[in-house]
Write a protein that binds this DNA or RNA. Structure first.
Length: 225
DNA sequence: TAGGCCATCTGGTCCT
DNA sequence: AGGACCAGATGGCCTA
């Protein structure tokens, strides 16, 4: 499924839509389940109990036509307490807002992943690593660079030096150390994903599929050459 | 066609 | 209460 453009269903819009305060423009965008649900919601809105039928009749509005057609909506007239509907709508509204937030969150996550891909060497250049490959390769790449520095006699990277995350908060490194933990690992020199904190599953994913093989430019620790 | 990858939705949980 | 985060489910697209 193609990525839905951001802003297609803004939070505020959803809210307005759900509360019946905005008239939804026919969306030419890709059909998603959310959209479908919104459409359902629109229908619901349209079928909201209309307390001012007399006025509509006077104005020749839809109330008149309904009555003329002799159609009566099932259920819903007086029996259902309005508060239940309101609660339902509120719930739905919150859900859609949460969906939007979640979508944005995942978009941010993907953007960060793309940024990570950009700084990772791949061959060919435009080969796109999958998410899991990106993470694993980044892990290895950092490990390899660290090893290279270490073997070159460079001073250890200062713990606490970290990438500013998201640009908003202060830099943090949840791991508590700036170097890939496994640098002390006895598994040095393999340069396989199993090297840095490797696991069986890591090894399973190495090497990457042909055509997107990235590590050709990863500097090997001198000891390994 | 099966399997991999991905985007999205959803409900639960935790945190502020 | 509302938002962030997470994991499971679902369905679409693509490739071998």
């Amino acid at each position: 499924m193609p990525v839905k453009a951001e802003g297609l269903s803004g939070t505020a819009e959803d809210e307005l839509l759900l509360l019946g305060l905005a008239s939804p423009a026919p969306s030419p965008s890709l059909p998603s389940s959310a959209d479908e649900e919104e459409e359902e919601e629109e229908e619901e809105e349209e079928e909201e109990p209309r307390p001012v039928v007399e006025e509509e009749e006077a104005a020749g509005g839809r109330g008149v036509r309904r009555r003329a057609e002799g159609k009566r909506r099932p259920g819903r007239s007086r029996g259902t307490p309005r508060t239940a509907e309101t609660a339902q709508r509120l719930k739905r509204s919150r859900r859609l807002k949460a969906n939007n937030r979640e979508r944005n969150r995942m978009h941010n996550l993907n953007a960060a992943l793309d940024a990570l891909r950009d700084v990772l060497p791949t061959f060919p250049e435009d080969a796109k690593l999958t998410k899991i490959e990106t993470l694993r390769f980044a892990h290895n790449y950092i490990w390899a660079l660290t090893e290279t520095l270490r073997l070159a006699g460079a001073p250890p990277v200062l713990p606490g030096v970290a990438v500013a995350v998201g640009g908003a908060g202060s830099p943090s490194w949840s791991g508590g150390t700036a170097s890939p933990a496994p640098s002390a690992s006895p598994r040095a020199c393999t340069l396989s994903p199993a090297s840095p904190g490797g696991s069986a599953s890591d090894a399973e994913h190495w090497p990457p599929p042909p055509g997107r093989f990235p590590p050709t430019t990863v500097p090997l620790p001198r000891r390994c050459l």
